[in-house]
Design a protein around this nucleic acid. Structure first.
Lengths: 153, 153
DNA sequence: AATGGTAATGAAAATCATTTTCATTAAGGA
DNA sequence: TCCTTAATGAAAATGATTTTCATTACCATT
């Protein structure tokens, strides 16, 4: 969906939004980049190629993509929001280990089968109990990364 | 530990910090309040009784308590950090449902037995694999709360 | 292909949570 | 009680994000 211009354009229009250059470019960068990008990160990636695209637009686009549930927003404790594309298929589903000292983030994909089973069960119960429409979940481990551990806390 | 002044004082000293009035008062408020408080929330709760305690000190104290792992920091998407006391015993262990529209937070404690089993297993594997010292985890469901669902997204 | 209504943009200014600075205060060990 | 120094408070600074507003450019319609 994200790979082809035509599909992207349709996706925006389906949601009642226009497909513009900044939106295409930003979505493209998120598509091509694995790591967890902040608005500024994206701005500096975009700027050399499209210097007319401003930081404000990056913020607005990230907000839009988030509302469209194309991307997820994370807080890893470094004072800026970070974003990741939500890809289709189970292959990319992952969660994070976050170092509470240096804020380093490690992605993991272990135990996803079991997780899915477990999460599905909770979701069923919670969504009924609280009349809540659950559409995503995040799991987040905190602690000390190898580097910070060896340097002493 | 948090209930008695003597214990609190010792706890601070054990960690090499002084036990001061602001620290006692702020810890006390966190102890007595169930909900997820922001620095400002705490400041306004403190202020009528101890007007000499400033917002800066609230921020600094929350930072300290967080580093001492007495409290946890959360981002529920409303632009301010929120904090919760980490209580002892299994009874208070819980996670959150967060509405992506109005940022309402619902605590849940369902399936904690199974969760503990599941999380313990993941932690063992991940901590070895990444040489990471895991000391806590967060689970976070996102979606629409009953109110926002009925009002139409 | 040209047009027009309007959503989207960019630059600058504003906002707001959080952090820093620095002079003053007060823990708590000696 | 004294003294060292960590902790505090007020004000200023910072930095991420949002708002404002005049301009641009999608894209449905002609």
């Amino acid at each position: 969906m994200y790979g082809r211009r035509q599909e992207r354009a349709q996706f925006f229009r389906h949601h009642g939004f226009r497909c513009t250059l900044p939106r295409e470019v930003i979505l493209d960068i998120l598509y091509k980049t694995k790591s967890h990008l902040s608005a500024e990160d994206i701005y500096f990636k975009v700027h050399p190629i499209y210097p007319q695209i401003g930081l404000t637009t990056v913020y607005r686009t990230l907000d839009l993509l988030n509302k469209m549930e194309l991307i997820s927003r994370f807080d890893f404790g470094d004072g800026k929001a970070r974003y990741e594309l939500i890809k289709e298929g189970d292959t990319s589903h992952h969660h994070h280990l976050v170092c509470r000292k240096c804020n380093r983030v490690i992605d993991y994909t272990d135990f996803m089968k079991e997780e899915t089973r477990f999460i599905k069960k909770i979701e069923e119960v919670l969504s009924k109990k609280h009349n809540f429409e659950i559409d995503s979940h995040k799991i987040h481990f905190q602690g000390l990364c190898s580097k910070c551990k060896s340097e002493g806390r």
